[in-house]
């Protein structure tokens, strides 16, 4: 039934459907703006402790520190802003809908479920981007212009990199979400992704400061492409071929994770049962 309706829709119809979903998701985000603002405030407070730890380390420098104090305190606020902008609640939303059985109505819609969720995540990202812009402006004022990109080319490459980071972030989330179909609570699934993100994305420190073994593990995971790579591009750490290689690497992760999510979801759908109560 769903598939036959899907086939009758023109690409333009589908595009309109996705846009309409994105618009409504944005409206919903603006309706709950006080909640989002409180979330931002809590995240800032939490992140301040990380900054304070690094503040202490740089006040008592050791020869092992390979990054200058200025570079570190440019990296940290940028990492915070990017991480907050890419934060999305689709795992919580889908978790609730699975538990309540409302996922059935989502699956009946004649639009691609994965792409619809990406639109939802995009609306979260748009909304959070504007909130984190406030933090960015405060950081620019505090750091007196050090926070600006290294060059226009770096900034343009950064924009591409952030777009790819968004797809990777979404795709990783979507892959983990599949686990919620098999559990009663979404906590475990969400938190396991979060723990990997916290360790390997570079949110708390640039990966160049990591012990070698952690760095090697991180290279085999997609998480560094979400925070560390875009911020390094913004700060002008990649040039010429290295920059292109970093973007291609991100693109491959984005494509690979999206397709993996697609195939795993297809497989998951085969095994779920929806109660008709």
């Amino acid at each position: 039934m769903r598939d036959s309706v899907f086939q009758t829709l023109t690409p333009m119809d589908r595009f309109k459907g996705y846009c309409s979903f994105l618009y409504r998701a944005l409206q919903a985000n603006f309706t709950y703006r006080s909640s989002a603002f409180l979330a931002l405030l809590t995240s800032i407070i939490s992140y301040c402790f990380t900054i304070l730890i690094w503040r202490y380390v740089y006040a008592h420098p050791s020869p092992r520190l390979t990054i200058s104090r200025t570079a570190m305190f440019v990296y940290l606020p940028l990492a915070f802003c990017l991480n907050f902008a890419l934060t999305t609640n689709i795992d919580i939303r889908i978790g609730q809908r699975i538990r309540l059985g409302l996922i059935a109505t989502d699956l009946l819609k004649p639009l691609d479920f994965q792409f619809l969720q990406m639109m939802q995540a995009l609306s979260d990202a748009f909304f959070n981007f504007f909130l984190s812009l406030g933090v960015f402006i405060v950081a620019v004022l505090l750091l007196k212009g050090n926070l600006f990109p290294a060059s226009v080319e770096d900034f343009l490459a950064f924009l591409v990199s952030v777009f790819l980071a968004f797809i990777i972030q979404f795709s990783v989330l979507f892959l983990f979400i599949q686990g919620i179909f098999y559990t009663n609570s979404s906590y475990g699934i969400s938190a396991s992704r979060l723990s990997l993100h916290l360790t390997f994305s570079g949110i708390s420190a640039p990966l160049t400061l990591y012990p070698l073994i952690l760095r090697h593990i991180g290279e085999w995971l997609p998480f560094q492409n979400i925070i560390y790579v875009p911020i390094s591009i913004y700060m002008g750490k990649y040039h010429g071929l290295a920059l292109i290689a970093a973007l291609v690497h991100q693109m491959l992760w984005a494509l690979g994770m999206y397709l993996l999510g697609y195939w795993v979801f297809k497989w998951t759908l085969r095994s779920i049962e929806i109660q008709g109560g």
């Binding site: 730890i53 008592h60 092992r64 708390s204 990591y210 012990p211």
Partner: peptide, 12 residues
Amino acid sequence: GLLWVVIHQSPL
């Protein structure tokens, strides 16, 4: 992991 990173940079 973060503690490890921090201690790696500043042993005390």
